[in-house]
Write a protein that binds this DNA or RNA. Structure first.
Lengths: 197, 197
DNA sequence: GTCTATAATAAGATAGAC
DNA sequence: GTCTATCTTATTATAGAC
């Protein structure tokens, strides 16, 4: 029997995760110490370790929040509406990155960490697999509705466009994280000019 | 007066840097300890610290090697030849990433580190600024020679294409680092289909 | 310049009281 | 569940001999 409600535990976990996100954003996954996270959360070591087994588990929870949040949003996009064009899909997906939990600087850190940690790499695979499915189904629907392709042709066309569309999103993330003067609007305008629309 | 030749010192530095690259590729910037780098180099702590002030200086040397190597190569590309198309430029640039020092997994780590460390971010800015110049001059030349644009139009067109081209390269890097089954050939084929060529 | 041995510190995690 | 105090280990960097 749990001593406190499940809601309470979950709220505490979210609270700690949120503090960890702020800490990692400032100091990086490696540069942030447990003491930093503890201080940022306003709690104590004991409280933190009561909810997470250790730093690694906190990092995974943070990564899950950070990379997953936009995909869920995109899935709901254009429900019922006519199929959006590839450039419309990206124009919906990408600007949300700045507002959301999925801040580009944190995404870059997750990617870097995934190069070294198996568990984080697996997490990335899952999320990117979801993203590819969502993109592909939008592209396929648009190719059929607006370009009059038959199902087989549309599917193949979407599969050819898919890596580029994913890549353009990844490029947007890198550039908005790295370049101080990155012009998101100009990037999206170029997308509309050079991608099928 | 130096006790040994400058060539000797430089060779030792390169040797240490190469060992550090292998170590960081396996364990990550943060996960690799000085002891790891020392072991990988076959030298001793004293020898390493005789050539680098500390781990941070080694990281910067590694980052310089890793992110700079492809830009120099690209600059020499197509000297004298007729202007390559945007998709030809990328088709030359990107496959070299796998062979070169600029391994995608290390690039992702450098990007992540740059989110946290000012010096590495500055280094990235310099290299990306170079890359943008090289890309832009190729695109502009091609637009004039093959599309018959006048200078002003070609320059503006190249500037609009530039962020996407950079982004497609960054996407290639992310995907080849993250996806075990990434198909580089298919990515390049899609580039040729969807980009000006 | 390079080696071995070690000093100094920082960090993750736990123990026991409340 | 949460707090304070602390244990233990790992890590960077240096000292001094050769």
């Amino acid at each position: 029997m749990p001593k406190v409600t499940a809601e309470y535990r979950e709220a505490r976990r979210d609270e700690i995760t949120a503090a960890a996100i702020r800490t990692f954003a400032n100091k990086g996954f490696a540069g942030a110490s447990m003491a930093d996270i503890i201080a940022e959360s306003g709690l104590s070591a004991g409280a933190i370790y009561g909810h997470f087994a250790g730093k690694h588990e906190i990092m995974m929870a943070v990564a899950r929040e950070v990379i997953g949040s936009r995909v869920d949003d995109l899935r709901e996009f254009a429900e019922g509406r006519p199929a959006p064009s590839p450039s419309e899909v990206l124009s919906h997906m990408l600007p949300g990155l700045s507002n959301d939990l999925a801040q580009p600087p944190l995404l870059l850190q997750v990617w870097g960490q995934a190069m070294v940690e198996e568990g984080m790499r697996r997490l990335l695979w899952e999320v990117f697999a979801d993203l590819r499915h969502v993109y592909a189904s939008y592209f396929e629907a648009w190719a059929r509705e607006h370009e009059g392709m038959d199902e087989t042709t549309a599917r193949a066309w979407a599969q050819r466009l898919l890596p580029l569309a994913i890549g353009l999103g990844q490029g947007f993330i890198v550039q908005s994280a790295v370049f101080e003067d990155f012009d998101a609007e100009a990037y999206l305008a170029s997308l509309r000019e050079f991608l099928p629309h």
